[in-house]
Nucleic acid binder design. Structure first.
Lengths: 185, 185
DNA sequence: CCTTTACCATACGCAAGCGTATGGAGGAGG
DNA sequence: CCTCCTCCATACGCTTGCGTATGGTAAAGG
């Protein structure tokens, strides 16, 4: 134990703390000394587990990519149902979160090519999935592609806008109107 | 003149340079010493025009709000036409830009209450305008509100995603499909 | 019990940036 | 020509954060 009574940390502890800070305050706030203080250790620990800050950031990206790629999709598939039910489930699941981590990764991606590459892969995977749902709903490939992208962008925009102005403005509360429009052939 | 032959600067010169840096590299990159170097002066100039960095950032926000609130809307109204034509013009104008400045303001708003307040006002104004367009298209208030918000979010998401994966994935190239869906009653 | 391994503290040098203090320089107006 | 006003340069102290060097400690295994 160290002087404050905490147990010793491993690589994963640092990564989880890093993702937490990233989701909360952005990539610029992910700094080794403040992070060490938050974890109750000194940066001696950090530089034992990671070569430098850059290597740490790459590790954060890998962790995010691993969990962000399939999380929602597998949950939707687990619930099952027809395409319409799965699309509805997808909305519900996505809108139940805050999207903060994804948004910070997206902001990060505007300035870092590694983040951009990771984000592109994740976006691609998700888009393909939604596109397949629309095709299953009976839309032609081009139509499905367009609607999938539009929906995906709207979800991103939902999180980008943050807290809505009024209570009736939240996408989730106008769910049925939009859903109806999207699945209507 | 200073030693590099440049003329002296006023408040507006600093603000414009600040917005440029903000749009390019985000609020974290807006720092007085690098900015001074880019302008060919020292920070002595900066602290003559502004009390401190915070006051400068607020000035940037005011400038952005002043130009972002009405720019697109006035241009759309200038072109005129019926609601459908104006909605189409709005898409065209918005999609012709990069949205970088707006996106950086949005990222900034996640951590700063002043930025958040300014952004909320701008979003509110724009949303109301789009909502009015949909009402003019014959949609009921609730329906218009839902569609307006959905469209607005999708546009934000478009910029948040940055460069698209494939050439056929860009919203602007699937314009007609989406537009058809949006205005269909 | 004694060594090795894994993890951490401490102390250091360095760079970037904020804000301040002070001393000009150059044009405008009397 | 002299003075004031506007704008800027220079130099300083301070803080935060990166990365390194080195020594120390607790636990595990022989």
């Amino acid at each position: 134990m160290n002087k404050s009574g905490n147990v010793r940390l491993n690589r994963q502890d640092w990564i989880l703390a890093g993702l937490k800070t990233l989701a909360g305050d952005g990539i610029e706030a992910v700094r080794v000394e403040p992070l060490a203080k938050a974890l109750g250790v000194t940066k001696g620990s950090f530089y034992w587990h990671f070569k430098n800050r850059d290597a740490f950031l790459k590790a954060l990206l890998d962790e995010w990519r691993a969990r962000a790629t399939m999380n929602v999709i597998t949950e939707v598939d687990r619930r099952g149902g027809d395409a319409q039910a799965r699309l509805r489930a997808l909305f519900t699941i996505v809108l139940s979160g805050t999207g903060r981590l994804d948004m910070e990764i997206r902001a990060w991606a505007a300035k870092d090519r590694h983040a951009r590459a990771a984000l592109l892969r994740v976006d691609r995977t998700r888009l393909d999935y939604v596109e397949a749902l629309f095709e299953e709903l009976g839309f032609a490939p081009e139509e499905a592609k367009a609607r999938a992208r539009f929906v995906y962008q709207a979800l991103i925009g939902q999180f980008a806008m943050g807290a809505p102005a009024g209570p009736k403005d939240r996408l989730s509360e106008q769910f049925e109107i939009i859903f109806e429009m999207l699945v209507r052939r």
